[in-house]
Design a protein around this nucleic acid. Sequence first.
DNA 1: CGTGGTTGTGGTACCGATAACACGTTTGCG
DNA 2: CGCAAACGTGTTATCGGTACCACAACCACG
Lengths: 345, 345
Amino acid sequence: MSANSADVTIRDVASLAGVSPMTVSRVINESDRVSPDTQRRVEKAIAELGYIPSRLARGLSARRTGTLAVIVPDVANPFFTMVVRAAEDVARRSAYRVILCDTRADLAVERDVIEELIAHRVEGIAIAPVSDRSKPHLARLARFRVPFVLIDRTVAGIECDAVVGDSVGGAQQLVEHLIRLGHRRIGLIVEADEVSSARERRQGYESALRAAGLPLDPALVEVATPDPDGGLEAMGRLLSSEDRPSAVFAVNNLVALGAIEAVRNTGLDVPDDVALVCFDDIEFASRLYPFLTALEQPAETFGTLGTRLLLDRIEGRGPARDHVVVLPGQLTVRRSCGAQAVGAA
Amino acid sequence: MSANSADVTIRDVASLAGVSPMTVSRVINESDRVSPDTQRRVEKAIAELGYIPSRLARGLSARRTGTLAVIVPDVANPFFTMVVRAAEDVARRSAYRVILCDTRADLAVERDVIEELIAHRVEGIAIAPVSDRSKPHLARLARFRVPFVLIDRTVAGIECDAVVGDSVGGAQQLVEHLIRLGHRRIGLIVEADEVSSARERRQGYESALRAAGLPLDPALVEVATPDPDGGLEAMGRLLSSEDRPSAVFAVNNLVALGAIEAVRNTGLDVPDDVALVCFDDIEFASRLYPFLTALEQPAETFGTLGTRLLLDRIEGRGPARDHVVVLPGQLTVRRSCGAQAVGAA
DNA sequence: CGTGGTTGTGGTACCGATAACACGTTTGCG
DNA sequence: CGCAAACGTGTTATCGGTACCACAACCACG
């Protein structure tokens, strides 16, 4: 047994087995044009030396790296955590590895990360882009012929495969629910308009209000960063306005968390003083304390489906036209909206 | 502008700039032995062609891939999510990329994943191993001279750098706290003994009981998989025993979640009927509903410190001896233990 | 003005694998 | 029995970079 297996190459295996490197390569790649006897000898040599073929060399000559990448703006957001986990799983089942990139919603990081991934010659990327301003980054991918699939968000001016939620419809459902509960002044905490999902949720909010004959009051719309701190500040502003809303729709789960905190900090309570609904559940929190009325999205499905589409593209099985999947969400009514929770259990 | 930048090589850049590939390589690598004029010409050519050097080729000839890996048993566990995010961040700051692997606590997956990573010639691995039975996997890494750092768990028989929590001490604190509240029959839901952190938490539990002169009753100890379902089942068994515990220490946050569910399913309540404490907080849940009395661990620090140690090793800055960091946790008292939460805010 | 040292650049081999082709040996079938 | 197809294996070139050495041009110094 060698002291160090790190430098064993295909040639070492070949000479130990008494064959050429090419034959070893055939064994590794399970080509069938190898005699059973040779195959056995080679496999024995591989085992004896503890040989592990270099993916670098393989990738360089075969032009296949067997690596995908998943880019998300925030792995710590439970929605994206599940997306990442599902993507990793699907990838592994197809013998691909996954490089995870968290852009922290920073365009500069996203740009760099994409350069890196091209340099790494990843075979495809599933990306939840920062915003519409990610367009040049995606254009660069297209220029390098790196297949990619958008997850959760589309980007204006980019045509490609995508898996997104029904943000317009979901937002409508949430707001209609609030209206049904009797709310007339409904606030919105949303992230910047250049994020497609946020834009669409805002549209859903507006169309629900219009359908109910309610006025659109710009004072009721706050723009925030999509995290608890953003929600905290935005809700603070809404609460301090003269004619404060009786209900608020938060663009996602983390924003909702901050929003609730803001309400409580003011000595008020959810839902008694302010009702609250949002997109995306926080599974662990709901399990402990079913509180948030949320439009739950099937996060894992975003990841699995997105990765499948990506693999299809890579392996040329993709449809000729772009494939945009819209996944419906599900309204789960709990306490934060002030409705008696319908005891479904 | 070329129609496709995917196949631009260093030679294309060289001929456009009227220099040799070697000179282009020097520019890419910021070697200073290039005249300012040449440098400018080469950079212009690079920009014009949209050239991105191949990491495969670089890795192959320079024997540096600039890639690390992080292996965790479950990214969806908030503790590991934070570890991963922190690791990724530190890595990027040092110009390394990170491959994420989720073993789902499956030894076979762990084995495969490690083979893959060696094949990829990653330069180092931060790993939260499945259990003591991960030893052969780590031995393989050692044999291939791949530096690695253990995160959160040590492995019997493996000496290396590690960043772990003070499981014994933390468990003691939690159990002492329950004893102080008057509990005499304290249950434990723990994962298999072959996981070092679980083993140590059990030790802490036992020594706290012994110190208080309380008996160790095997009927009070349930082994479970470290997830909500495991907690649910284990707590179910504890509750149905004839002399059920008045308090339970759950080995981690997810187990606690399931345990609470089990209590509630029985028509009982936490903490009135059964008090509960656990390791690791669930930040998002606590933010919404400060309920779990937990021994909080600085998850991000596990990731940052672990990755720093790893980078030190890789770059040869590591100390000669193994560096084991033990991070203390912090007891945060909330409602689940039945104590009046000390209003610290 | 010769010698040694620096500076900028190029040539060649090689990293570790595979593609493409070539070649000797069976095997099959009329 | 002869020739073609199938089989098993090796040879060579190449993937896209970098290490290493060579070398010309220039500098300074005694």
